[in-house]
Design a protein around this nucleic acid. Structure first.
Lengths: 308, 308
DNA sequence: CATCACCCATAACATCAGTTTATGGCCTTA
DNA sequence: TAAGGCCATAAACTGATGTTATGGGTGATG
């Protein structure tokens, strides 16, 4: 509610090209060098940086005849800019994979949480190793992912569930855990001892829809504590769940990956849970026997963070 | 090295206005509604969304005479877009604080890590509560922050050090910890048992410069284990440290906040450390006796995640 | 010192994406 | 059937961003 913005964000924040240019200036140490790197001319770079400085009302670079270095404010702004550019790179990596749907070499299927929060980063890294590989991405729930891998519509799948799927080989690529989080104004935010599993089970929660990997894990973990109460809200996307919790509607349960930023910024507070195991493995899966090769193997080893 | 991009990112990723528009369409459920919300006309919105679809090569919205809803791909793209927009909002919040240096009401001083990773989020929230408050921000190391608060050049400070500063009152607002991280190719990435404090102390590390809060905490924690070996590299910014570690130069030590994304994406791997306490409190500080009031109090309670 | 090789700034002009205004067609509802 | 949502298209306007062309600094080198 009440998040009107009179002037759209886009008019107050320099555009991606300008931010990229600023990063290049920081790395290279001169405006003209940065311009060369980005394939534009020096006057263009000069004018763009100047425009950004007047818009922000702060000097970003110290110009000298020997080059340009960031001012103290410039360094800070550059770090914020870097985060925007990194998010844009993740967007680009995902978008390329999505576009490549037709004529691609590596077809990936992934559950929503992994596709949203992890895959873009991996794809950026993969592009570094194999710039020519076109990647396509299909996102769906675990059952859909497994199906696509089994029918060879995908070369590699990523799932979050508990079950080791039949007919597939798999490797654990990371541990995730479910987190119970509430808005800072919620009573649970002040509990230092957190909640017992039984209390959690009995409390109406904001959850993803039945059938999602998140929901499955939660159901299983609380089965021994009376089972899950009827949900307070049942929403179709991670984002919607987060938004409801941020608004103070009640406690939500989501992957740690989805709430890292909100927890760090204290927009949400984690509530420790005792008596239930909310960890879960993130797995890569592929058709049984058919060990991934080529780009699929590269992606797999990236995700495990170890060389083959 | 070798991260040439032939076409700059800015030409492959829709601009912030377009991403914002897409988010608005997702929320509102119609192109014209989204257009109204952003203060542009319906044809502009229509053409912009279409341009984005052709650029990405994917249909993002299902149009109907009753409104427009996201396609499955559209929902995924929207989530990636949201992360870009959030980063841009953080940029904006920080930039506004920086600009407001002259005629502002709330003056904040913060150490680099907090200013980079946490403050923008808090400032977004603060703007929600008090849209009219102009905030100014000064970033520096802990000593500078303390100095500014003592001399009343800042109303509120945020520091990371171990020491409780003299002449100031403080409140712990969060726990942070230092993380030892290495590139996936580094030998330590495969150690399941991590490293002993003594081994860590004896190993040349990639560190922030002496005098930074991070460095102080590390020095103190390893003092009993033979003290810190001569650094492998000593760099002036968090980002430079990260870049060196990502390149495989060696182990780095940074705030958990700085490496959350890299750890999640497996571009870096955390190495557990036994025998040393690398936790540290993040504190808000203010002049002794002068309990924060007004906007300072609001910001403080936001950071603590509890109502006054 | 003069030359060369960097750096940055400014001016005048070209280009293109994004915008508006002005339409028209499609569906649902009263 | 008229009214009021929605979306699409066409044509003209605007401004930001780019270019080429030029000039003025600094420092290394013979």
């Amino acid at each position: 509610m009440g998040d009107e913005e009179l002037v759209p964000l886009a008019h107050r924040v320099p555009d991606l090209g300008a931010l990229e240019l600023l990063l290049a200036v920081a790395r290279v140490g001169s405006l003209s060098g940065a311009a060369r790197r980005l394939g534009i001319t020096q006057p263009a770079a000069s004018s763009r940086i100047r425009a950004m400085e007047t818009r922000l009302g702060v000097a970003l670079v110290d110009r000298s005849p020997r080059g340009s270095t960031l001012t103290a404010e410039g360094a800070l702004v550059t770090d914020w800019a870097r985060r925007v550019v990194e998010a844009a790179e993740a967007f680009d990596a995902g978008a390329q994979a999505l576009r490549g749907r037709r004529d691609s070499r590596l077809r990936v299927a992934a559950s929503m949480t992994i596709a949203e929060y992890l895959l873009p980063g991996w794809l950026i890294a993969l592009r570094g190793q194999r710039p020519d590989t076109a990647v396509s991405l299909h996102a769906g729930n675990s059952a859909v992912v497994v199906q696509r891998v089994l029918t060879h519509e995908a070369d590699l799948g990523f799932v979050e569930g508990l079950t080791v799927p039949e007919g597939l080989d798999s490797a654990v690529i990371a541990q995730d855990r479910l987190v119970v989080a509430v808005a800072p104004v919620h009573a649970w935010a002040r509990r230092t001892r957190g909640v017992e599993a039984a209390e959690l089970a009995a409390t109406p929660l904001i959850l993803r829809e039945r059938g999602s990997g998140t929901r499955q894990v939660l159901d299983a973990a609380l089965a021994g504590h009376g089972g899950l109460a009827a949900p307070l809200l049942e929403l179709a996307s991670t984002t919607a769940v987060k938004a409801a919790a941020l608004g103070g509607a009640g406690p939500c349960v989501l992957s740690e990956l989805a709430v890292v930023d909100e927890l760090a910024a204290r927009r949400l507070v984690e509530v420790p849970v005792s008596g239930a195991e909310l960890g879960r493995a993130l797995r890569a899966v592929w058709p049984a026997g058919a060990r991934p090769a080529g780009p699929a193997r590269d992606l797999l080893s990236l995700t495990r963070g170890t060389s083959p």
